[in-house]
Structure formats: structure tokens, C-alpha cells
Nucleic acid binder design. Structure first.
Length: 700
RNA sequence: GCCAGUUUAGCUCAGGGGUAGAGCAACGGUUUUGUAAACCGUCGGUCGUCGGUUCGAAUCCGACAACUGGCUCCA
């Protein structure tokens, strides 16, 4: 049995497998017990791989019966029997021939020999390296091809539960058969299992989708707007505005210039950049601009006229020739009529050196050109919604002659892109179809590259500090020299050069990074930044890519010192990723308890009662705060103060200023901070000054 | 797109072949209040959409859509 993670095509070595933790052994063993139980119910089940995973285990099975959660109790019942029987997990060493024979007899991942071979196991046996020993594990009648390790006995599986079914392709390849993946989890004892499910409940409560709705940050309106197209409500938009402000300030200080570009572009744009057909699947289908009726009618008239004139000339040509030449021309003309085109006739005339009168040939050629032109007049223009900003930025680069003195040129834009993610892929704000990217493209010379790349990394670290992100990994994706010219542009020197430069920067800045071969973009190495929200969900937030291909495809050049034109390097970078994903992350990161500078509602002023002087005093405070761009609201109604506080706390308002007669008389406000409770009465002026200060320095 | 599950009021959820329920929110009124909910009342749903079975469907069946968890790709 294989513990392959489909992302990692390299086999796990036996040493690696031996490192399996105690809990992983429990889960891996439970997968075997699951297979045992399924076989008791459905003896013809074919098993593929059943490894332990992060929160449990799964086993991939091929079975004509569709397993649904309704089957779980029945399967779990059988599993319990197997655990109760307390069979030992026996390790059996076999040679290759034996394994092959048993798999052929259907004995592997089975309770007995079967008429049909254990087909996936056959495939797995074949893929075990020659020098690696082969072993089985046996519990009761169940024998599985498996490198182990396992717990001693089935009874050592303390507590387990099947959780869900999913479909998965064998080895993660969609050309392979589709299998049913049964997921479950197991623990050493019932207490830990219960804790795990309690934790899952907690996770659900902190999910950005739930908090997003509760706090009124965004909504999805699949019926009217469309799936994956979030609407930012005022409170969510406030967060987006703060992030943009942060980005603008940071980028301005780092020498970026801001640009603005349209959301659509012509087909030619993406043909040139190389995204079509490479990226077409991920783009919305194009808009085709049909001609207005009058122009269309005129274009059609032109085409008809051109066609008649062409046919007339060809008619004369046919009359002027004879024999084989006539036959040939007639044949090709006939073919062309069926294809709705004309040019082939003249090509044939030229290529086969047919003997036609030169002046007629020249006339026909001219008419053919008119025909082609008329035909182009009927072509519709295609526009695509942009899936990325780079081509637009490239056009800005190309808009004026560039000198080496202009570089580095750093074009920044919070551009809204649209990606046609598959319907099953959409997840709340994590994967959407409209995305506002914290995008920028840095055009530079090779000499400037290291400094620019380093500056980008420093920007990431600066942001991590502001948001208190401590756990992160930079995944440095490099190319595979064996796939140059296929998966990666064929520029061995540039690959080596840029990858070395990037690696050096990473090492020098002591950044926590992980090198992943063979995962680069087709146009250059890249870095993805992975972070984890407090509930353990992984987010790929930011990306940082080196591009030495697009600038050349798009014909971008700068005039260098030596008066020659050179192609710049381009760095694509998006430290804050997209609003959608970043805010989704922040919601879970802060569990909705945003720091003051980010909080949608920063301050709420609550009055004790609704007596007029008190309300006037409170209103003046709200006004003063709002005059300083603080998002402050008031709650001046007749509710009891406890009720007002409860509502403010539930709305996760950062700072509550409670005002009663006592406070007013002393020119005070009573401060209450969300999650910190009552901080007592303080001088109004002091409190306001502190609020402004905390916002300005983006205090955590 | 594929597999499975889900879809009942603005939100969180109960119910279930005889025609729809709670809490919160909203609205109206009473209450004049000191740090996590004062009280009364009102409004609100073709039970995701379309079709079928049935005397009768929100309930059973089917198709579709959306959402959720996975597979694949990726910010």
C-alpha cells in the first residue's frame, strides 16, 4: 500500500516511512481495518492507496456500489468487529515474483484469492524500485501489500469514525480511473476523538464565511451576480480600503508608481503575452462584438461585390485557358466555393506554374485582395476579461521609449481580475472568480534584479510583522532542466542565472524557504507564500514571480548605455495577494476581532439613556472622531446599557465609549475594548488622541 | 468538470404526505437605564428551481442550480 501524496511524485523511502508517528500508525492501521470491513460487505472491492493524512486517513476503493454516509454505520460495525478480534498486524516479507503472483490472483488487499487480479496493487508492485524489499501486512484474513509500519494489533486502534466520501482519480491523474475515497479519522482513545470533533465545531464557528456573514463584511449572490463574485458590504469594503491604503503607502515609499488599466482587452493582447491558449481555460469566454446592423449590411454588400468581381475575372481566365489548366482551375474554384474562400486558386496558379495570361492573373490577384479585405470587415472583434494585469502593464511599458535610466520601473495597481474557476472549486473568499490583486510589475535590468527582488521580500516581511503572521513558508519553485522547451521556456542560462539570484537573496535574508523543483511558472522561477490561519487552514497568499519570457514576447525593450535595445526582466509580485483571499485569511487570523486600524467599526459611542444633553455630548464625540476619518458610530437609543454593550460586543466593535451623566460632567468617557472589558473612565481628549495614534501606527 | 452531502423567514436552526415553527434581526409601543440582552406587540416564507407520483407534496421520486467537503488547477 502506498502513502503517496499526489503532489509529491517522488516515492517515500522506507526510512521516511519508518518515521511515522504513533498516531499515524494508528490511522494507517485503521485504513487497513476499513478495507477489511469493506471487503466483508463487498468482496469484489479493488483498493488503491490508503495512507494516513493530516487529520485521519483514507482508502481509495473501486466499487460498483456507491458508498454514501448511510453505509457508514454498517462499515463501522464491521470495523469494530475487526478491532475487537484484536488480530496482530503480521509483517510478511516476500520476493517480487510472489507479490506479482498474489496480486494476479486477487489476493492483495483482499480476504481471499479472487477471480479478478488486484489491479491497482499489480501496478504498485511494478513501481517498487528493484532494490527495495517488498512486504505484506496481514490482519486476520486481510492481506495487503504494504511497507508499514503499523500498530501491534487491531485492538490498539482506540477510537475511530468514518467522516466522508470523495471522488479521487487513481494517483491523482484524471486520465486514470475514478475511485471512491473513504475518509475517516482515528485516535488512541475516545476522549481525543471527541476533542477532535469539538475542535471541528470550533473551526466551523471561526470560518471566514460564517464570520463574514455575521459581521456583514461580504455577501455572495449566486443568483443575480454569479457564483464566486463576492459583493463587499460597507464593513468589508472598509477593510479593503485600509489594505489598499497600506499598500499605497508602502509602495509609494518603495518607489512604485500607480497606474490604472481597463478590465478587458482584445484577443491579440493575450495571444501576444502567451496566455492564450495556455491560460484560456481559466479565463471567462470572450465577448464577441457583433457589428451594428447598418455596418454589417454594408460589409456584406462589399463582400458580395468583391466576390462577383473576383468570379467575373476568374470566368474570363477560365475562358482564356484550356486543357489541364482549365480542369485544375475549375477544380480548385469548386473546392474554394465550398470553403467560402477564394485565395487558393491563385496560390495553385502560382505554385503549379499554370499557364495563365499574366494580366488576368494580376487582375485576379487584386480582386482577391479586395475580397480578403471585405471579408475582414465582417470579422467580429473578441475581448477578454483580464485574468491578470501583466499584459496591460506591459502595454504601459511599451507606451513610450524606455531608457536604462527609467529602470527599475515599478508599476503598481490594485487591479480587478476575473478567472473562470471551475464551479466545484469555489470556496467562500478563498477561491473566487473576481479578484482584486495587490499587483505590481517591476521592470529592471539583470544588474538591478537582486536588489529589487530583495526589496520585495522585505516588503513581505514588513507586512507579516504588521499582521502578526509568524508561521509562514516561502515556496521557491524552480524549473526542471529536463523539461526545457516543454514545460519551461528554453533559456537554460536565464533559468540558472535567475534561480541563483533568487536563491542567493533568500539565503542572504535568512528567510524560511522551501525549494520545490519542477513547479516554476513557464516563464520563470516563482515564490509562493504560504501561511496558516489560526484554525489551521492553509492560505497561499502572495506570489512573487520572475519573468524573462513575457517581456520578450511582448517586444518590450529599453535602450541601454551602449545604445542597443535590450529586453528587461520583469518581477510579478503581489505581497497582499488579493483582497478576497487576504481578507478571508485575516477574518480567520483575527477570528473577526480586528485590530483598531482594520476594524470595520472602530468606535461606537453608547449613551446610558437618551437624555438630550448626554446625546449631544456623545454626538459631538462621534463627529470629532469622524472628522479624523475614524469609523465611529453612535447608539443613543433607550435600550439598557447592557443591551447596547451586548450588541456592540457581538458586532465585534473594537472600542466602545460608554457615556453616562458622570462622564459628561467630568469631560470623560468610559472606555471598553472588545475582548478586554471595561477599562474605566478617562479624559475624553486623551482617549481620542490615543485612538488616533493607534490607528496611525496600525497598532496590533 | 467529477464524487458525496446539503438547500425551510434577513441570520441561526427545528419540523415533516393534510397546507409552516422558535430565537435573533427589522418595525411599533411601554421602560430613563453605569459595562454581555427590560417588557409587550407587529411584520416576515409558493420550504432552492422545474417536472413527476398522489384526492392532496414543503415532505416521496427525477432533472437542474447553488452551497459544503474532497479530487484537479491555482492568487
Amino acid at each position: 500500500m502506498e502513502a503517496d501524496k499526489n503532489k509529491q511524485p517522488e516515492r517515500k523511502s522506507l526510512d521516511d516511512r519508518a518515521k511515522m508517528t504513533e498516531l499515524e500508525r494508528v490511522r494507517h492501521s485503521c485504513a487497513h481495518v476499513l478495507a477489511t470491513a469493506i471487503l466483508r460487505i463487498w468482496p469484489d472491492a479493488q483498493f488503491a492507496a490508503g495512507p494516513p493524512v493530516e487529520n485521519g486517513f483514507y482508502y481509495d476503493v473501486e466499487l460498483s456500489h456507491r458508498i454514501s454516509p448511510e453505509d457508514f454505520p454498517k462499515i463501522e460495525e464491521e470495523m469494530k468487529k475487526e478491532i475487537k478480534a484484536n488480530h496482530p498486524f503480521e509483517k510478511i516479507m516476500v520476493n517480487r515474483e510472489q507479490a506479482w503472483e498474489d496480486a494476479t490472483k486477487g489476493r492483495l488487499a483482499a480476504l481471499a484469492e479472487r477471480k479478478v487480479p488486484s489491479k491497482f496493487k499489480l501496478d504498485i508492485v511494478q513501481n517498487i524500485p528493484k532494490d527495495e524489499p517488498i512486504s505484506y501486512y496481514k490482519n486476520g484474513d486481510f492481506i495487503d501489500l504494504c511497507a508499514g509500519p503499523h500498530v501491534m494489533r487491531t485492538g490498539n486502534i482506540g477510537a475511530f469514525k468514518l467522516t466522508h466520501v470523495a471522488s479521487a482519480y487513481y494517483k491523482g491523474d484524471e486520465r486514470n480511473p475514478q475511485l471512491q475515497r473513504i475518509y475517516g479519522t482515528a485516535f488512541k482513545n475516545k476522549t481525543q476523538l471527541d476533542e477532535y470533533f469539538k475542535m471541528l465545531e470550533e473551526t466551523k464557528r471561526r470560518d471566514h464565511r460564517r464570520i463574514g456573514v455575521e459581521l456583514g463584511l461580504f455577501v455572495l449572490d449566486p443568483e443575480y451576480v454569479g457564483p464566486g463574485l463576492p459583493l463587499w458590504l460597507p464593513k468589508g469594503a472598509a477593510i479593503a480600503e485600509e489594505l489598499e491604503k497600506l499598500a499605497k503607502e508602502t509602495e509609494f515609499a518603495a518607489g512604485y508608481v500607480r497606474v490604472k488599466t481597463p478590465h478587458i482587452a482584445k484577443e491579440k493582447m493575450y495571444q501576444t503575452s502567451g496566455h492564450l491558449p495556455y491560460y484560456q481555460e481559466s479565463m471567462f469566454p470572450p465577448m464577441e462584438l457583433s457589428l451594428d446592423p447598418a455596418s454589417k449590411a454594408e460589409a456584406e454588400r462589399n463582400l458580395n461585390k468583391a466576390e462577383q468581381e473576383f468570379d467575373e475575372v476568374m470566368g474570363r481566365m477560365k475562358r482564356a485557358v484550356s486543357g489541364e489548366t482549365l480542369t485544375k482551375i475549375t477544380q480548385v474554384l469548386h473546392l474554394n466555393v465550398r470553403q467560402g474562400s477564394k485565395p487558393h486558386v491563385l496560390k495553385t496558379v502560382q505554385e503549379t506554374k499554370l499557364d495563365v495570361p499574366p494580366e488576368l492573373y494580376a487582375e485576379a490577384l487584386a480582386k482577391q485582395r479586395t475580397f480578403d479585405e471585405a471579408k475582414r470587415g465582417l470579422e467580429v472583434e473578441k475581448y477578454y476579461l483580464k485574468a491578470m494585469n501583466c499584459p496591460h502593464h506591459h502595454r504601459i511599458f511599451a507606451a513610450q521609449p524606455r531608457s536604462y535610466r527609467d529602470l527599475p520601473l515599478r508599476l503598481a495597481e490594485y487591479g480587478c481580475c476575473y478567472r473562470y474557476e471551475q464551479s466545484g472549486e469555489l470556496i467562500g473568499l478563498l477561491r473566487v472568480r473576481s479578484l482584486n490583486m495587490n499587483d505590481a510589475h517591476i521592470y529592471c535590468t539583470p544588474d538591478q534584479f537582486a536588489a529589487e527582488f530583495n526589496a520585495v521580500n522585505e516588503m513581505y516581511l514588513k507586512y507579516f510583522k504588521i499582521f502578526g503572521i509568524e508561521k509562514y513558508v516561502m515556496r521557491f519553485s524552480t524549473h526542471d532542466p529536463a523539461k526545457l522547451g516543454q514545460k519551461f521556456v528554453n533559456e537554460p542560462e536565464l533559468w540558472k542565472q535567475t534561480e541563483d539570484m533568487v536563491r542567493q537573496v533568500l539565503v542572504d535574508s535568512k528567510i524560511n524557504y522551501l525549494e520545490v523543483p519542477n513547479e516554476a511558472a513557464f516563464y520563470g522561477p516563482k515564490i509562493d507564500v504560504q501561511v496558516w490561519s489560526v484554525i489551521g487552514r492553509e492560505f497561499t497568499l502572495a506570489t512573487n514571480q520572475v519573468d524573462f519570457s513575457q517581456p520578450r514576447n511582448c517586444g518590450l525593450t529599453y535602450r541601454d548605455r551602449d545604445n542597443t535595445d535590450k529586453t528587461p526582466l520583469c518581477i510579478h509580485r503581489a505581497p497582499l495577494g488579493t483582497h478576497e483571499r487576504f481578507i478571508g485569511f485575516l477574518i480567520e487570523h483575527y477570528a473577526g476581532n480586528f485590530p483598531l486600524w482594520l476594524a470595520p467599526e472602530q468606535v461606537r459611542v453608547l449613551t446610558i439613556g437618551d437624555e438630550e444633553p448626554l446625546v449631544d455630548y456623545a454626538k459631538a464625540i462621534v463627529q470629532e472622531l469622524r472628522a479624523h476619518m475614524v469609523r465611529a458610530e453612535g447608539d443613543f437609543g433607550t435600550d439598557k446599557i447592557n443591551g447596547k454593550i451586548q450588541r456592540a460586543e457581538e458586532a465585534k466593535v473594537h472600542t466602545m465609549l460608554v457615556i453616562g451623566p458622570r462622564d459628561m460632567q467630568a469631560a470623560n468617557v468610559s472606555v471598553r475594548v472588545h475582548g478586554k472589558g471595561n477599562l474605566g473612565a478617562k479624559a475624553k481628549a486623551e482617549v481620542i488622541a490615543d485612538i488616533l495614534h493607534a490607528i496611525k501606527e496600525r497598532r496590533a
